[in-house]
Computed example of a mutant assay.
Amino acid sequence: MKRAFPWHIVVFLAPAVLVYSLFSALPLIDTLRLGFYATSEAGHYSFAGLANYATILFDPQWSQAFWNAMWNNLKFFLIHMLLQNPIGLVLATLFSLKGLRGERTYRTLIFLPTLLSVVIIGFIWQLILSPLWGVGESLLSYAGLADYFAPWLGQESSALFTIALVSVWQYIGIPMMLIYAALLAVPEEIVEAAHAEGAGALRIFWEIKLPLIWPTLGLVTILTFVANFNAFDLVYSVKGALAGPNYATDILGTFFYRTFFGYQAQIGSPTMGAAVATLMFLVILAGVGMYFYLVQRKLTRYEL
Rank of each mutant, 00 (worst) to 15 (best):
Q126P: 01
L127Y: 15
I120P: 02
V118A: 01
F149Q: 04
S141K: 15
H80N: 11
I110R: 00
S130D: 06
A143M: 12
A69K: 00
S96K: 12
L140Q: 10
L112W: 15
G102C: 06
S96H: 13
A143V: 15
S141M: 13
I120G: 04
S141L: 08
V90G: 09
L74W: 08
G88D: 06
Y106V: 05
S130N: 13
T93L: 08
L82R: 03
F76N: 02
Q126F: 11
L145W: 11
I87W: 04
S96R: 05
I120E: 02
T105F: 15
G99L: 00
A150F: 02
L132H: 13
I87C: 08
I87N: 08
W125P: 01
W71H: 12
G122N: 13
F95Y: 07
V135L: 05
L145H: 07
I79R: 06
W71Q: 13
L127W: 09
W71F: 00
L115A: 15
Q84S: 10
L100P: 05
T93M: 09
L129N: 01
L139V: 02
L140P: 07
L83H: 03
T105R: 06
L109R: 06
I87M: 07
G99T: 07
L91P: 04
G99C: 09
H80K: 05
L140K: 00
G134T: 04
L127C: 00
L91Q: 00
S96A: 11
Y142P: 03
K98N: 07
G144E: 05
N68G: 14
F66M: 00
I124S: 13
Y148A: 14
L74D: 02
A92L: 04
N73L: 02
Q84K: 08
R101E: 03
G144D: 11
N73Y: 07
L116F: 06
S96L: 01
L83K: 00
G136K: 12
V118F: 07
G144N: 01
Y106C: 09
V119L: 12
W125G: 04
W67F: 15
I79E: 01
N73P: 08
D147M: 13
M81I: 09
L78S: 10
Q84I: 01
M70W: 13
G134D: 08
Y142Q: 14
L74E: 00
P131K: 06
N85T: 07
L78W: 02
N68R: 14
A143R: 05
T105K: 12
E103T: 14
Y142V: 15
T114W: 12
N85D: 07
A146Y: 10
Q84C: 09
